[in-house]
Computed example of a mutant assay.
Amino acid sequence: MELIEEIKELKKYKEDNDLTIAELARKIEADDTTVGRWLKGEVTPNFYSLHKVRNFLNDIKNSEDLKPLETFRDKVTREREQTKTDINYLKQRIKTLNDIEDLDTLVTELDVIAKLGNLIGDAHNRPF
Rank of each mutant, 00 (worst) to 15 (best):
I100W: 08
L103I: 09
L90P: 03
E109V: 04
E5S: 12
T44Y: 01
E23S: 04
E5R: 13
E81T: 05
E9W: 03
G117S: 15
T105R: 11
I7F: 04
Y13G: 03
I4S: 07
A123E: 12
T34E: 15
G117E: 10
A22V: 10
S49T: 08
L3A: 05
V43C: 02
I60H: 02
R93S: 03
Q92N: 15
E9F: 01
L110A: 08
D122A: 09
D32I: 00
F128P: 13
R93T: 08
T83N: 10
K40R: 15
I7A: 05
P68S: 10
K75I: 10
K11Y: 08
I28R: 02
D74K: 13
T108E: 13
K91Y: 15
D59A: 02
R54M: 04
H124F: 12
D86E: 13
K40T: 08
K95F: 06
D32H: 15
G121T: 07
K95C: 02
I94A: 03
K95A: 06
L10T: 06
Q82T: 14
E70H: 05
K14P: 02
D111I: 04
G36C: 04
I28D: 01
K67L: 05
N17L: 01
R73E: 13
D16H: 05
E64V: 03
L90I: 05
T33Y: 09
R37P: 05
D102M: 06
K115Y: 04
E79R: 15
K27R: 13
I113V: 12
I21V: 15
L50Q: 10
K91C: 06
K40Y: 07
W38P: 06
G117I: 08
E29S: 07
L106I: 10
P45C: 02
G121L: 09
E23Y: 00
K75W: 08
T20Y: 03
E79W: 13
L66N: 06
I4A: 04
L119A: 06
E101A: 05
D111R: 12
K61R: 15
D65W: 01
K11V: 01
T105E: 15
T71K: 11
